[in-house]
């Protein structure tokens, strides 16, 4: 059969080359085909070498809560994804403030804040916004600021602990009582005013339950006095 195929192929090649008529045909010679080499002996108990798996990271498909997993033969781990994709929050905070003094950064006083927030729990960017009224009072004066910040955070989902950064603006009134030597602990002089300034914070936040939100952050309110702040907050999800 192989010889027949070879002969046919040779004939076709010669025909299309136009040389079949020009050259005398050669007679086909018998070629002896050597017998196939015997297969190597394989011992059944000898382990066969397997190539190592390629060193690549496994492919993780993007999260899709609407993806239908019902076609899997085995039951998958149940994942609760029935949380809302976005949440409106009402948050109350306990705030402590520090002020820059000639000797260094010193404690200024304490107070509270009430915030209205909005977070996209599955969103990309921005993850949310926050509007806070901050009131801090101390022996050296008082700071009342309204702060608006954009929140950037990994997806919150139902997670309890997620880092975030909040960057924005603030406006407010402040009063600082200052002594002649620049120390704000006495009340020789007072300076006050209304100002606009930068505002930012870095912290952790998350959802303790379906309805309960928490946050801890350190940042600054740069209007008027220029206050460094740290606060711990609890909030509730408003609406669905």
């Amino acid at each position: 059969m192989r010889r027949a195929c070879s002969a046919a192929a040779s004939g076709l090649i010669l025909f299309f080359a136009g040389t079949a008529a020009a050259k005398p045909q050669r007679e086909l010679q018998e070629v002896e085909i050597p017998p196939e080499a015997p297969a190597p002996l394989v011992v059944a108990t000898e382990p066969q070498p397997t190539p190592p798996p390629p060193d690549v990271e496994p492919y993780e498909p993007p999260y899709d809560p609407t993806y239908d997993q019902s076609h899997y033969a085995l039951p998958t781990t149940p994942i609760r994804d029935d949380y809302p994709r976005e949440s409106a929050l009402l948050v109350a905070s306990a705030v402590h403030g520090w002020l820059s003094q000639p000797a260094g950064v010193e404690s200024f006083g304490g107070g509270g804040a009430l915030s209205m927030g909005f977070v996209q729990r599955d969103g990309d960017f921005p993850t949310g916004v926050d509007l806070s009224a901050v009131m801090v009072r101390g022996q050296g004066g008082a700071v009342y600021d309204l702060s608006f910040r954009i929140i950037g955070s990994p997806k919150l989902g139902r997670r309890v602990l997620v880092p975030f950064a909040a960057i924005g603006l603030c406006a407010g009134a402040s009063r600082i009582e200052v002594a002649g030597d620049g120390d704000a602990k006495t009340m020789d002089e007072a300076s006050w005013g209304l100002a606009l300034g930068p505002s930012a914070a870095l912290g952790l936040h998350g959802f303790l339950s379906d309805k309960l939100y928490w946050r801890a952050q350190a940042g600054f309110l740069g209007a008027g006095a220029g206050l460094y702040t740290a606060d711990v907050a609890l909030g509730v999800v408003v609406g669905k």
Partner: peptide, 20 residues
Amino acid sequence: DLLHVTTHLPGPDAMTARGT
């Protein structure tokens, strides 16, 4: 940039200036 700067001047004329 939106800045808040607190400046502490040293020496006999020590003073503190704050502003945006």
